[in-house]
Design a protein around this nucleic acid. Structure first.
Lengths: 236, 236
DNA sequence: CGAACGATTGAGCTTCGTCAATGTGCGTGG
DNA sequence: CCACGCACATTGACGAAGCTCAATCGTTCG
């Protein structure tokens, strides 16, 4: 999800210039010494699908960089209702760089690998290394940008546009080309939760886009884009 | 609007513990020297209702702290459609602390006073003063929290809940008590834009909440809360 | 095979947007 | 002062989008 127009030319990889996706750019602006320090304090953790990395309200001990898989960020409210705040894909950061309390719960939607940093280590590094502090701000800025794109999706897009946006997003991130299969590692229910729709509406709209010939559905866990242009147009 | 649970005990004022609103806490964690530096680089500007402070896409020259009035943050997309990203009230910050390009346009919904800082001054201060960098991160974090609350409003709330949330928000911020008039300095159209609804729906829902006895409408530019508990319940 | 789970499809209903008519308050010019 | 125009607000009728409820289908796994 979705765009941070950072207005910066960092060295961070950009997977797809045309869609709304950019990678979090935290590493791009770091000097080598910062990178070395960073990797010195990180450790890898593997998550199984369904595992929860952090719970909303917990002490914020760690921030994480996604190496593989898809994480889901959710915040509950008093009624126990869950609002999905977004997804985090490879290379993106999740967690509170600054706050002492988790603002959202993070769950793995697929098997995933993350690189964990203790928040305090991170903060200490930021305090002593201006470039690091700068990088944290970049990450926060970029997260904010993603949040704002997400708002546009939730606030203004129709069900069809939401579904198309989601598929387009996955397509762009996957690096696949037209007619090549793109993994779709979420259930319809999970997609519905992410997009703020019901499972029935998601199912109907996916079918509808498929019947229109824009995509193909070889099975429930993948899709092929027949016309990228048409899909992008549907995504609005 | 709306909540940043920073998990921090800062000295920043908290107007209303019960509702979702907190003040941006940037000043709370600054040492006096930082504050002195901060006020040295700031300057005041008055905005008339309808004035635009910054345009999306412009070079980000300044960040601003709202001293009075209400600002509206919007982002356009290719189609020229506008998505409202939120409002900024007294004591909150708007603008890009980190990015070189404005991410949203800022317009005054009412006459307003802002305190402006050049982004570069701000950044320089942050680079040399860890406490200042920390404060910027706090502000970014808090903005992120607001964005996430806004997502919940856009993603999950019904028209009635949105309107009630908005009124509840204003009520809490105003510091007024039950049966005291709360200023409502926006037109129905502006409220509709903010909440992602149409003017007709806003009008109907406000009337409906009024007919239910929860609020009273002495005129179009203010309201009185008859039952704060009921209003909070409607806000969900 | 049968149970369980996810997905699909249909029917009906609710909510909210659209379009159109009407009401209300206010400033301006006669 | 009054009449008029204008902007904003309200209200009603209608329709479309999407939600709810329920039935059915397909796959997978025991």
């Amino acid at each position: 999800m979705i765009a941070a127009r950072t207005g910066q030319d960092t060295a961070a990889p950009e997977r797809c210039r045309r869609c709304e996706i950019r990678d979090a750019a935290i590493c791009g602006s770091l000097p080598d010494s910062g990178l070395a320090r960073l990797s010195a304090i990180g450790r890898t953790r593997k998550l199984k699908r369904g595992d929860t990395l952090t719970w909303e309200g917990d002490d914020a001990q760690t921030v994480a960089n996604v190496r593989s898989g898809i994480l889901r960020l959710t915040a509950g409210n008093a009624d126990g209702e869950q609002q999905i705040l977004g997804l985090a894909f490879e290379s993106e950061f999740v967690g509170q760089f600054h706050d002492r309390q988790e603002r959202y719960s993070v769950m793995a939607l697929t098997d995933a690998t993350v690189c964990l940093f203790r928040r305090t280590d991170f903060a200490a590094l930021a305090a002593e290394t201006p470039a690091m502090a700068n990088a944290v701000m970049t990450a926060l800025s970029s997260e904010l940008g993603r949040a704002q794109q997400w708002m546009r999706l939730l606030g203004r897009k129709s069900a069809e546009e939401r579904v198309a946006t989601f598929l387009w997003d996955l397509y762009c991130r996957s690096g696949a080309h037209e007619d090549h299969p793109v993994p779709l590692p979420l259930t319809r229910q999970q997609i519905a939760d992410v997009l703020g729709l019901t499972i029935e509406t998601v199912s109907r709209k996916i079918r509808q886009i498929s019947r229109s010939g824009t995509i193909e559905l070889p099975d429930l866990r993948s899709f092929r884009v027949r016309s990228a242009a048409a899909l992008e147009r549907l995504a609005a």
